[in-house]
Each structure stands twice: as C-alpha cells, then as structure tokens.
Design a protein around this nucleic acid. Structure first.
Lengths: 192, 192
DNA sequence: TTAGAATGTTGTCAGTGTCAACATTAACCG
DNA sequence: CGGTTAATGTTGACACTGACAACATTCTAA
C-alpha cells in the first residue's frame, strides 16, 4: 500500500461521476468520497479548494460530453436545415434524460453565477452556438443576427424546459414521452 | 416571557418565506429558524416531521400565490383568446422572476417525486389547467383534447425554461430581458 | 381541580466542511 | 549519490447541521 495514492485528483472526479450516475448526488462530499477511495478525510483538500470546485470540474466534463453528443447531429449532412434543427432538439432532450443528475448539476445556479467558473461559461456558449448557427441557416441570409439569437434562445428554453420538467418528475403521469418529445420538436419548427 | 410561543407553526412558515425572499435559502434549517424565532433548537420538530415537510407547506403557499397571480389574466375578458395565451406566458415568467427563490423551491425535484406531497400535486395541476383551457379556447371546438394538452405542455415547458435559465443566471449577458420575454411569448403563438 | 395532551427544552449522537499541525513520499539539484 | 524542498496524505480539533429520547411546562377538557 502506498502512502501516495497515484492520482487522487482524477480518482475524485471519477468517483463523483460514478455517484452522480448512481443517483447519489445528495451523498457527494469530501468525507464520503475519501471513504470510498480509501483515503483520509481531508486528502481531497490537496486537490480542490472545496467541494464546489470539484463539482465545477465535473460540470465542465458534462458540457464537454454534451457538445460531443450534439456535434454529430449538427455536422450530419444528410439532414436539411430544418430537420437538423429538430434533431438537435431531440438529441438535446435525450442527453438530459440519459444523464439526468449530471444535467441538473450542469445547469445548477452555482456554476453560472457571478462569472466564477469561466470554463463552464465558455462551454455553455459553445453548445449554444451549435443551435444558433443551425437556426441562422434555417432563416437564410435575409435574417438579422439578432433574430437568430432570439429564436435560438427561445428554442433552447423550450428543450431545457421539457428536460427539466421531465427530470424533476413534474410529468410523471405522461405516457409516450418519446412521442411527445419528437412531436414537440417538430412543432418548434413553426417558431422559425 | 411565555413558555409556549403562541403559534410557532405559522411563525416557522413565515420566517422560512422571509428567508427565501432574502435569498437565504441555503441557510434554512430547523436550528437556524429556531435561533431567529428565539426558541429552542428542537422546538420545530413539534410541528413538522422534518425540514422537508416544512418546505412542502411553503411550496404549497407558493403555488397558491402563483395561481392567484395567473387567474386575473385568465379571467380578464378584455383579451382575445390568443392575447390571453400570450399574457399568461408573460405573467408566468414575471411571477418566477419576482419570486425566484420561491419558484426554484416550487419546482424542486423533492416535492414532485413519488407522489408524496399530494397537495402540491393538486395545485400544480390547477395551474396547468388555467393554461390548457386557454389553449383549448384558441384551438376552437374542432381540435382534440390531446392536442390542447400537447401544446399546453410545450408552452409550459417554454416559459418554464425561460424562467429557469434567467433565474439560474445562464442569460446574465442578455439585455432587454422584458422585451425578449414579450417577444418570445408572442412567438409562442405560432405553436397554436 | 386535576389528568392527559400539546408544546418547549436539554442532552446526546452521528454526520458534515474546514483549518492547522504533522508525517511521508517524490522530485530535483549539487 | 545524498540531501533539501515541494507535493501529498494524515490526525486532531472546532463549528455547524439533523435527529431522537427523556424531561419540563403549560393548556385543555372532563
């Protein structure tokens, strides 16, 4: 047994992700993580100032995965612009539903407030740009940039709202969730 | 100085609301509340099983206020059906922005999961019905009930998404928020 | 008036985050 | 190679939280 762990920093991030996937977000904490990694309670402090800083890194990784999930759809040449817009919506919501706890964390107030966590901010913008450019393509050359921004923001809000309401259990009574999602994303095309 | 407080239960709810309004949600807890109400640390347990149960009551009051804020718009005969739909959206978002912390709590996962907190569930449905009936009126007699449900759900998601993204600080860079909100609610009319 | 229910208090335990002081190991430099 | 220093891990301590049990006081109703 070594006194030094090897790569505790990475291990902390991994275990945190694991706990998030297992819906144990409420149990995440330095003491619990240390216990699971067989290390002393304050060892994590050598790698992260506090729990929030660790979570911020996990959030960054979430947005990275998020962008990676959306990019194939955005780059897929088989879609028309409008079909692409719709498929981005579907892919967005499905990502959220496949990683609910992670998605929650990614959009937690803590990481978007007061400009701390700059990396997170940059990645969010990157994801948004994927949507915005698709909207701009749908609108054609005649439209203003502001209009593409407005519509993209509204579309973002719509898919975010759907994701949130489903994840938070507000629509537990709803059957045929997938049908509703596709249907809604099709409907959102009328916004353009 | 009386040994008994008078109405500690009501006082706990009031103080909790006060703390929410002062953006001190993170400080809410039985010990802190007891301290502020000049009562012993475990006195709150005589009135609420645990903190979550206290919060559930506060959430109920939130939905009550919410419904009260939307009703005047719904009942206002001066609006056409479509204008009413739009104004409900604006009123919805403005309620959320005027009571951000309370709104957050109202839609917290904890109170909509697994059918506990039935009162909350009933009030949510009541608020949704206000929107759904307006949508049904817009659609006219020819449309199916399912269609009004689908569109109302999507519209709900949209205004919820806008509210959440603004409250959570994701759109801090956005100027002319009010203009965007009205503009978006107008755009949502194309969904019908 | 008095027994029992309601309400409030104190003591205790387990859990958390965080800091300071100390121990061990790794890395680098002469 | 050996020794100094930085990186990393540990232990102890403190303040805070939720929660339960045992006890105290007050209110209520027979």
């Amino acid at each position: 047994m070594t006194y030094h762990h090897g790569d505790l920093r990475e291990a902390l991030i991994e275990k945190t992700l694991e706990m998030i996937q297992h819906h144990e977000t409420h149990l995440i904490g330095f003491r619990e993580l240390a216990r699971r990694l067989d290390v002393s309670r304050t060892a994590p402090y050598r790698h992260f100032e506090n729990v929030e800083c660790l979570l911020a890194v996990v959030v960054e990784e979430g947005f990275q995965k998020f962008v990676d999930a959306l990019k194939p759809v955005v780059k897929n040449g088989a879609f028309s612009d409008k079909a692409r817009f719709m498929e981005i919506g579907v892919a967005y919501i499905n990502f959220a539903l496949e990683h609910p706890a992670h998605y929650q964390l990614m959009f937690d107030q803590r990481f978007s407030q007061k400009g701390a966590f700059k990396e997170v901010e940059i990645l969010t913008k990157e994801a948004f740009e994927l949507l915005r450019q698709t909207v701009a393509a749908c609108l054609g050359a005649g439209a203003s940039k502001k209009e593409s921004y407005d519509i993209a923001h509204l579309a973002w809000a719509s898919v975010h709202g759907i994701s949130k309401l489903i994840i938070d259990g507000q629509w537990n009574y709803m059957r045929d969730r997938q049908k509703f999602i596709r249907h809604s994303c099709e409907r959102l095309l009328t916004l353009i």
